[in-house]
Design a protein around this nucleic acid. Structure first.
Lengths: 222, 222
DNA sequence: GTCTATACTTAGATAGAC
DNA sequence: GTCTATCTAAGTATAGAC
């Protein structure tokens, strides 16, 4: 029932360790409460209670409610896009199995990790309303987005895609589609069946291989 | 400076007309303030002031802040998806010009109508957190989504797309991609250049014509 | 039908006890 | 390092004047 029995093989926690643990628990609780109530709707009292601490403990670890939120925004932005990139890497052979696994990932995120999409929406809204953190958000995207871009890049070259198709553009499209479909599934699950994301990816990559974008580049001259 | 000079050829407003006008102005102001501050962050005082009225006038027209928000959610949900469908209808010939016009629409929505995406996000968050309005949101989507579906359906049959590709599925993908790219452009405009949406649509429809989704349907038997 | 003044509630943040 | 008590500000909603 006490803290010592919960720790696996560790002695009593040092002061620094205890504080770090409190911080971590507060951040976890904050992610849940912010996702469910929104940034302004969430109260520091509710966050502190959800973590099992008092308001005072929260303010002893974070300067303000906003600072707590910004720490989440900067640190815990582990985009599910990174997982998508890993899923693609696991299936270098054909696009069929990769597409199926990405479909499963989308369904899992939408249906199981119910706090994910609302928290992302809160981050996005905060960034749009507070332009000073726009860079932070863009920076957070960079790593997972780059991973996705790399996987897509090798896939494009292997399938002899037209040279004018940039992996960055495709990665942006895939990520946007992922986020859009996750949201739509929360509104109307029937409209986003399990295989839809995989089907869309197959359509997309087949179309890219066929070289559909090239003709548009010469439109200006006509 | 007074109300009479503003009205074109109309006499003094009747009581009912004046009240309807007040309601309309309050709804307009509410849309702006909710988009900029969020549902919980917006105060009825700020909404009333933005409309040029007092708090009392607001409560004389709406039962509560929530009722005002819900009226916006139900009535002013004129999705930009409907415009996308119209843009597609204007170019029945080839996909090239239609794709270009949809690209322009996306850029216009993202860059000019800066309140649109945040307000949609607020609606979505509210619906996710208050499941009793999920049906309302789904119902709001139906009309514009159906229009988009019809345009896509005729386009699919004209181009001899595989019969197992449903227009509903494609419409969902197009709408999700639209929303996702609009949001991404607000975070990092450079990552969503003007032609990206059009390129993605060309890839998508080329891939569909090629019949890329068919093989996945027989996976179960293998 | 709209405005002014106000009652009531909640939430963010701080200070001092332990 | 965390908790209890409290101060202060802000916001929803109402009641009665005009």
């Amino acid at each position: 029932m006490n803290a010592e029995s919960a720790a696996p093989a560790r002695r009593r926690l040092s002061r620094a360790e205890a504080k770090a643990r409190t911080r971590s628990l507060l951040l976890d609780a904050a992610a849940r409460v912010f996702a469910r109530k929104g940034f302004t709707g969430a109260s520091v009292e509710e966050i502190a209670e959800a973590a099992g601490f008092s308001i005072g403990a929260l303010y002893s670890n974070f300067g303000s409610k906003e600072a707590l939120f910004l720490e989440l925004l900067a640190d815990r932005h582990t985009d599910r896009i990174a997982e998508a990139a890993q899923a693609l890497e696991r299936h270098p052979s054909g696009t069929g199995e990769a597409a199926a696994e990405l479909s499963r990932l989308l369904i899992a995120v939408a249906d199981k990790d119910t706090d994910f999409a609302p928290l992302q929406a809160e981050f996005w809204l905060y960034a749009v309303r507070n332009p000073e953190v726009l860079d932070t958000m863009a920076a957070n995207q960079r790593a997972p987005r780059h991973a996705l871009e790399q996987v897509i890049s090798t896939s494009l070259t292997r399938h002899d895609a037209p040279a004018d198709v940039s992996a960055e553009a495709v990665a942006t499209v895939v990520a946007a589609l992922f986020g859009g479909l996750v949201r739509q599934r929360r509104i109307d699950p029937a409209s986003v069946p399990e295989e839809l994301f995989g089907d869309a990816l197959r359509w997309l990559f087949t179309g890219i291989r066929t070289g559909a974008a090239a003709p548009s580049d010469t439109d200006d001259t006509a």
